[in-house]
Design a protein around this nucleic acid. Sequence first.
DNA 1: AAATGAAGTTAAACTAGATTAATATTTTAT
DNA 2: ATAAAATATTAATCTAGTTTAACTTCATTT
Lengths: 209, 209
Amino acid sequence: MANMMDGKHQLKKNKMNNKPFLNYLKKYIALTSEEETLLLAKIKPRVYLKNQYIIQQGDVCKSVNFIISGCTKTFYMDVEGQEHIVMFSIDDWWTSDLGSFITQTPADFNVQCLENTQLVQFSYENLEELYTEIPKLERLFRKIVERAFVASQKRIIRNFSLDAKERYTIFKQTYPKIEQRVPQYMIASYLGITKEFLSKIKSQLIQEQ
Amino acid sequence: MANMMDGKHQLKKNKMNNKPFLNYLKKYIALTSEEETLLLAKIKPRVYLKNQYIIQQGDVCKSVNFIISGCTKTFYMDVEGQEHIVMFSIDDWWTSDLGSFITQTPADFNVQCLENTQLVQFSYENLEELYTEIPKLERLFRKIVERAFVASQKRIIRNFSLDAKERYTIFKQTYPKIEQRVPQYMIASYLGITKEFLSKIKSQLIQEQ
DNA sequence: AAATGAAGTTAAACTAGATTAATATTTTAT
DNA sequence: ATAAAATATTAATCTAGTTTAACTTCATTT
């Protein structure tokens, strides 16, 4: 319905290349050309359209995804049908339901595209093999998850020790790009407040200066 | 002052052994005797007394710690001097300020012993070396951090979508051992509520059944 | 151009949980 | 065994954020 028009913007799969992902990797690890070949054989480029789901709550998460371009939201739908957004992800970030992926059990989270999104996907089996074949890659992934864990812990603290206005201010500082790309009611969901209260906060912040 | 008597209970360093840690490791990875020797040379047993700090906010975190026996709280002290407990850790768990440890920058968190606590400590340098010398260990640590990250994400969701009573019920189910070992006001801090409100919740739960 | 609808705003009534303060209970020190 | 300190409970009042509902704006469909 709403996305019937999206076909117009569909990105052509055959035109996609892995360059952006390799450039990202090169910032952190140096691969030999054999390793690069090994890697390229085991990753899969994929395009999702706006509003499509990369992962759905209840399904087993089959991939870890690197975003080449686009934007996604990771959210949980509670028993009352309310969406709770855990994170947004954009270009050069990773997204998955890691809990579902590592245990290969049903996902708690949905990952949905907010824009047409180009990904590089790692399947469970291929990633396991790559860890053994390219230990540098396992090391990088360890570090990525370490950083994600640290960010998650800090967010717990922020949620406890800061009020909604402070959390919103920090959100804007930390994710300036995301703030303009996603609707306000999703930002409210990320902050754990209602869209009405976010509205109130924003008008307060404007009046304050 | 309060802990002058703790000397009585001091555990003797020389009597400490690494058996409990090796038993823990054996549940997940098989080490050759050379690897075991390599590992033992690079870990340090250590005893902290009740109330002592393993890590202090502002210091650079120098170790990742495996708890052989005892209990710790990880907390953040905000500008108003309020404690916010992020996690409790007991026997067979890990504790650190991972953010500080991996970047070797000042810690956001304090880790303080709630009981006399026996640890096995990994220094930054030794752990880096061990990762290279024993890839199995790096893989295990990757998996441990993955699980910690998943738990942390789930906690963010719970904090948003559940009320304090539901969070308390889940806490009791998830950490039955911890519930009896730590004072109620710390559980309140972990749940993000006041000790008074926790009291109210508990009396409500008693009346409900 | 009119109609439908999604996104955002404003304002009033309401509620979960905070704060304060007084009392009770348990732990620790002497 | 007892005093002092730390921890836990109860109740009254207060507040940050929710809920509901009416209103606006802008984009899409007919």
